[in-house]
Write a protein that binds this DNA or RNA. Structure first.
Length: 610
DNA sequence: CCGGGAGGCT
DNA sequence: AGCCTCC
């Protein structure tokens, strides 16, 4: 769970951390002291710190690596099963710390947690006269659950490393400081638990949004945490640390600004600004353009960015989004826990794949692994009212034939997709233009794949002949003349079965509500006055989402480990929480914003199912 | 723009 | 169906 970042970044390289290496080390601790590199095909996808000391970096060619350091241990990691399993276990571990279910994964090794509610609760209970002997409550129900901490200071690193101002400017900033301090202690606790219970170290960032928490997390890298400390707004004589921090990044390093967008922005900034243009050496090193450069470039606005980034298929409002990002603004919410993935895909890449026979063989292999994955990730075992659980790998493997009839599908994918990446033909001059463009065809997924009586092999064979081969013929009508560098088979368009809501299982929902008695009490008392009772959702006299954008809680991220979140709203938020604004709650189960008076009805809707 | 994913948008 | 983004 450790993120690592090498010192010398490839110009286009995004972070990839040593999660894969950590999984191998967890399985075999002897590897920890050795330089360990993880291989997929011809490249090192990641490596541990021992290897980094010797100059290794991620996405490095194997050849290069072996010459550099012949004694490096190289492990193959093209089958991602073990990493997926480890990722799931760690995610489930973190999830249990959450009260509101806002725990979002990005890739296998990054998680955001919105812990606004936990911070709020603890902020209330804090004794301002004895901060040094504070107690952090991890449960509303059991007041003994938690840990002691020194609430007078941050734990772990901060950005800036030394707070320039010890005295907060106003009461809002004072509260934000306290919330972030609480966040830092929660992060520390969870990191320690993670290491103690699961044997994984984590790197964490704590702030008020996904954007800032993720970025600040990478300031101190392995096995560490960093909190972005206030002021979050600038005032005379003092720039906000948000601005200072985000300004220092290369545009392309901002999450949400990818390869393409960064390129367009760079071109725009360098082109239009004569001062910059002067120093541009073409063919040399790529010009570094920082967020500050972009933010302060002439006539910078959301509208101008929208034009710069416009293109066929580009998302609407991208200019505004990017403008927000470079100003450190991100109001996106931490996603709700999801029990079922949106898609499952299996792929492999090839140096050469140009005959029908080889394709058939590969399709069978991919189809087989895909069906195994479906049984792993889409099947729930029902052990009579106990915890619901997913199958482990061996269970899914022995699914050949006699699976107990307690296994239920959580979802049925409706669509099957076959994707290939054709290798472009040689240019007249003998060179090959690199391309990464893929082509795909989809079809309804035949129902028989969810048959649990038949063996994976038999189902895979049938899937190939009845569905994948027709799709392949649509993609590549000729029997030869193509050469594929990649084949991907996916199931998508998950339709949940009656028993499941995608956000969580029915039992999980019941459990979540039962834990939230205080909150329910609040709703009930309001319910007496409101006319809701039985019927409607948020419809009738609805308070609508006024202010939502303004005071919506923004995440305090824990990069990698998790990200706690709380309100970063300028002023009106924590002042007097009771009366100042309309009460709109976020449903614990599905994440919808629901007026408080309608929450009991909404909750019933979940408990009763459809 | 390497590798095996996954998700969101148009 | 394709593109972009993230790891």
């Amino acid at each position: 769970m450790d993120t690592c970042k090498k010192v010398l970044e490839r110009k286009d390289g995004r972070d990839y951390d040593c999660f894969y290496a950590s999984v191998f080390e967890a399985e075999n601790p002897a590897l920890k002291s050795l330089p360990l590199a993880v291989q997929q095909k011809q490249i090192i996808v990641t490596c541990n710190y021992e290897a980094r000391k010797r100059g290794f970096h991620k996405l490095q060619l194997i050849r290069e690596a072996k010459i550099m350091c012949p004694e490096v241990v190289i492990v193959l990691a093209e089958d991602l099963t073990r990493f997926r399993d480890a990722s799931k276990a760690l995610y489930n571990f973190l999830k249990d710390f959450s009260w509101n279910g806002r725990v979002e994964k990005l890739g296998f090794d990054e998680v955001w947690m919105d812990v606004t509610d936990i911070i709020d609760y603890n902020l209330d209970l804090l004794n301002g006269n004895d901060l040094l002997n504070s107690f952090f409550h991890l449960s509303k129900d059991d007041p003994t659950l938690g840990f002691g901490f020194d609430g007078s200071k941050y734990i772990g690193h901060t950005y800036p490393a030394v707070a320039e101002r010890t005295q907060p400017q106003d009461s809002a900033e004072d509260v934000l400081c306290m919330r972030l301090r609480l966040g830092s202690h929660l992060a520390q606790h969870i990191r320690h638990q993670l290491e103690e219970r699961k044997g994984y170290t984590a790197t964490v960032g704590i702030s008020t949004s996904k954007l800032l928490s993720k970025l600040v997390g990478s300031v101190n890298k392995p096995k560490a945490q960093t909190t972005l400390v206030p002021p979050y707004v600038s005032s005379e004589g003092l720039e906000s640390s948000v601005t200072t921090f985000i300004d220092s990044h290369d545009v392309g390093k901002i999450p949400g600004i990818g390869f393409k967008a960064a390129h367009k922005i760079r071109e725009h900034v360098l082109h239009r600004d004569p001062d910059f243009d002067a120093g541009l050496t073409y063919g040399g090193m790529k010009e570094k353009v920082t967020v500050r450069d972009v933010r302060l470039s002439t006539s910078m606005s959301a509208e101008s960015l929208e034009k710069v980034l416009a293109g066929p298929g580009s998302p609407h409002g991208l200019g505004y989004r990017v403008w927000c990002l470079i100003n450190g603004l991100d109001d996106s919410e931490v996603g709700q826990v999801r029990s079922v993935p949106k898609q499952i895909s299996i792929e492999d890449s090839y140096i050469r794949l140009d005959t029908v026979d080889e394709v058939l063989k590969e399709l069978r292999m991919l189809a087989k692994n895909l069906i195994k994955r479906m049984r792993l990730d889409l099947l729930e075992t029902d052990d009579d009212g106990g915890e619901s659980s997913f199958m482990n790998e061996s269970e899914a493997d022995q699914a050949d034939g006699r699976i107990s009839n307690r296994k239920r599908w959580l979802a049925h994918p409706k669509t099957l997709r076959l994707t290939t990446r054709p290798r472009p033909p040689l240019n007249p001059d003998g060179t090959r233009t690199r391309t990464f463009s893929r082509v795909s065809r989809s079809a309804p997924l035949p129902g028989f794949v969810s048959n649990l009586q038949e063996s994976v092999d038999a189902l895979a064979a049938k899937l190939v002949t009845e569905a994948l081969v027709p799709l392949f013929k649509k993609l590549h009508p000729e029997k030869s003349g193509w050469n594929l560098s990649l084949v991907n088979v996916a199931v998508t368009n998950m339709a949940d079965t009656a028993s499941d809501k995608k956000s969580a299982t029915g039992r999980d929902i019941a459990r979540m509500f039962s834990r939230q008695e205080d909150v329910l009490k609040e709703w009930r008392s309001e319910d007496r006055d409101a006319s809701s009772g039985t019927g409607g959702g948020p419809s009738s006299n609805s308070v609508e989402l006024v202010n939502r954008g303004v005071f919506a809680d923004a995440p305090v991220g824990f990069e990698d480990g998790m990200k706690p979140q709380h309100s970063m709203a300028a002023d009106e938020d924590w002042g007097d929480e009771e009366n100042s604004v309309e009460q709109i709650s976020t449903c614990q189960a599905c994440g919808s914003a629901v007026p408080s008076f309608a929450m009991p009805a909404h909750q019933r809707y979940h408990l009763l199912g459809d």
